[in-house]
Nucleic acid binder design. Structure first.
Lengths: 211, 211, 211, 211
DNA sequence: CATGAATGAGACTTCATTCAT
DNA sequence: TATGAATGAAGTCTCATTCAT
């Protein structure tokens, strides 16, 4: 019987501890020793599994972002209307936050929005997501479903900007959180970006959504 | 003639130098001595005018953000359609970037997007802008011009998120810059947020804008 | 008529302010600007009258210490018993404290007891006082009034040590202060050093003093 | 054999080096790097064992002062005349100086006499010594051995003042040092404080002491 | 005399990373 | 793997002093 698998994967323990510490204290404010303490391992062991403090955050980001990229890709492969695609993407991100708000806080606050530090490092990776969304938009434009005077790149930026801003709002308590709010947000993001804020003729003044 | 005004306002010289240094190296990466060197003043003089490196960035942000808040307020006071109000606000921010991209880079990248450090500190001030925009949205909803199923807070977030993301795109060269692009962006932001990405019936497939 | 005498002697104003600031914050903790502020004069004026922060304290010490040296000298010139001489010296110091506790706090705490900084600088001057007291002791020993197995130097040190410790006790609230306590202290210092703590035969168990 | 104990206790090495550096240069004048250099360790190791430069001095003082307090306590527990108790205490302090003059210089000059800095911090601890001595005096007064018109607090202050002044005299070369002088001092301190400077009837003019 | 802006050396402390065991 | 002691570079802030007006 294999004895090679340790009872606990210390590397994983350290990564999970890092999420909590980064979320609580912020990447720059916390020390490597804080992570080791939180993980309950010796100082030096962190450097056994990771070459630097940066690499820990990089690892956390890449792990999660790849899941996101795959999710978008999978959504894009489906034969559904563009509105449903964008709804699925918004849903995935919102549900990620609902499921593990600490991890998403770290991804958003310490990487995605930290434009000048990790954001810069991972710009190509972040851009992949933009590009995938832009591709979705572009195809819908060619199909005549989306208007063509808004460039796909711009549309992707606006969509992602809205999603990121909403998550930031939750993280910093500018927006109320809760199951109802998460579901509402998915709908509102898509409605705003696809339908626009303006009331259309024939639209009911306070149109409810059809769940 | 009054001789009371000094030939050069060293405080201003330091602030302007700080903008260049922060934009070039980033707030955390630069040293106070870099600012002093760039300003051509002695190290200690920085601390004669400011109590800390943080206070320099705070000052730059507050100076500029107050101008923005006043601009939004002034826009809100005018008797024009909501779409024009949002266009005016987007224009103001885009023009701010066109006029002084280094300063706006610092405001956006080092403060607004630095969610966990300065962003947190200035959250109340940043929120004022959100709230003013939300108020504009709310009024338009009551007038029946904007749909009411998107909450004003959410709409403000989406609008500001789009603007911020576009500026970030320029700053990090994800989007092309230039006079034409700046003007285009103002239009696209408003079109996307107000009109929505979806092509409406009767809308030309690739509707140009009427300048 | 002479116009040479200014309405206020700024130099004196600065010195008096320095006493209050040194007493309140301590020499090392206070800044030159604190002294200027307390004196109500411009920063630079302090350096017009004094070459350094040190010189201010030096001046305060030397002014006061010379008064003490003259007082001891004058006491020594009188034809009175040694016990009365020491009582007069103790009285002079205690009364100095009563009259201007802030100044004496500065002299004692910042100079006399600051053995490694100003104390070292002014050791020769401080030693003059020891020597004068030693001379008084020596003469009394030759007259057979004081015992000769205690060297004059040692006796002077013990006497001055007791005085300094009592003042330190008042300054740091280890001993109660007040008119009664000041008078009592003069008596107790002399009684302890001259008479000794031991109860002598024929002495009443709780001998009061004859005022 | 246990290998758990390191060959050299670096913490101790740093403390011992600090004594030499503090004694040589003074606490305020020396830099942390001087201590590290003297100890032959890296700069940062000092901060591995101590949170600040202050804490090093605090540690040195408290280590030594606790030894003194225990010594006094032990002396007080013995069934010997008060004069012998005070002699034992003076002996302990004088022998401490003889054994490790650098350490005692640091304790006296940088802490005990630094009334406004460390002295203030450790006043409660210093006071414990005063109080223990005062207790010894008080008991002797009740037994009728010491006069009662000098309060125990005052007597303790005078005794400790004499001891401290003598050590200060040695430290600053106001008094000659040497084996003979150290022994002499123990005797003189007690003679002066207990017996008083005045020649008693029947006392030989230049009474030697019976060793 | 008077002002206060300008200078710049100096020192503490932090903490990521390395390494011997 | 695991430990945590050891390393040392880096940067902020202080403040006495100078100087131009």
């Amino acid at each position: 019987m294999a004895r090679s698998e340790p009872a606990v994967d210390k590397r994983r323990v350290i990564l999970d501890a890092a999420v909590r510490v980064f979320a609580r204290q912020g990447f720059h404010t916390c020390r490597v020793s804080d992570i080791a303490d939180e993980a309950g391992v010796a100082y030096g062991l962190v450097y056994h599994y990771f070459t630097s403090k940066d690499e820990i955050l990089d690892t956390l980001f890449l792990e999660r972002w790849d899941v996101l990229l795959h999710a978008i890709q999978e959504v894009d492969g489906q034969e559904i209307p563009v509105r449903e695609k964008l709804f699925a993407i918004a849903s995935f991100i919102v549900d990620s936050y609902r499921h593990d708000p600490e991890l998403m806080k770290v991804i958003i606050v310490e990487v995605t929005r930290a434009a000048n530090t990790f954001g810069r490092t991972h710009l190509p990776k972040i851009r992949e997501a933009y590009d995938q969304i832009a591709t979705i938009v572009e195809r819908a434009q060619r199909e005549g479903v989306l208007r063509s005077d808004v460039t796909p790149d711009f549309a992707a930026l606006a969509f992602y900007g809205a999603v990121e801003q909403v998550l930031t709002g939750w993280i910093f308590a500018l927006l109320p959180t809760g199951e109802r709010e998460y579901e509402e947000a998915k709908y509102l993001i898509v409605e705003t970006i696809c339908g626009g804020l303006e009331r259309k003729e024939g639209q009911r003044p306070a149109a409810g959504r059809a769940d």
